[in-house]
Amino acid sequence: MNVVHHNAAGSGFLSPTGVEITFVLVGLVVLGAALVTVTTRQLVHAALWLVVALGGIAVEYLLLTAEFIAWVQVLIYVGSVVVLLLFGLMLTKAPIGRSPDADSENRWVALGVALAAAGTLVWVVADAFRSTWIDVHPANGPGATAVTGSSLFRFWVLPFEALSVLLLAALVGAIVLSRRRPEGRDR
């Protein structure tokens, strides 16, 4: 059987232009899902649209040949973070259907700030990277797991360990915060 090893799902099938077009299309999906996430009045729907956006971002990582990151994205974000968020929504009695007050009174200010930020940043970014190209084709690129792993454990060991301590602290913190005090003692 003729075996073809593709180093990254997706990119191997596509020509450079194809990658570009796919990237833009998926990007539009991501943006759309993100927009719905921040505007929908149904709380759980927001979380589900967030899944779409995050999954789309994982695909974008694949297109950028960062395969390992992509799977981490799926594992952590889609598999855990969103589940936690849904968990939180359900524990705080998220209603089914539209909440009339999902947005606060700040929404017009928020819209202004967000639009201004978007405008400024797009302008700056477009101005800065007008003629910059990245090569997403080379085989066995930086996204390969082996490469990422060796760089992570060779050059980034110290930050990695520091991160472990941070995670431990977060774990302890979350436990302390969510533990119920025994009866008779003040909160």
Partner: peptide, 13 residues
Amino acid sequence: FSIGLYGVLARRN
């Protein structure tokens, strides 16, 4: 990022 920014500023929950 800007969409997220809007969400942070505008969402109530």
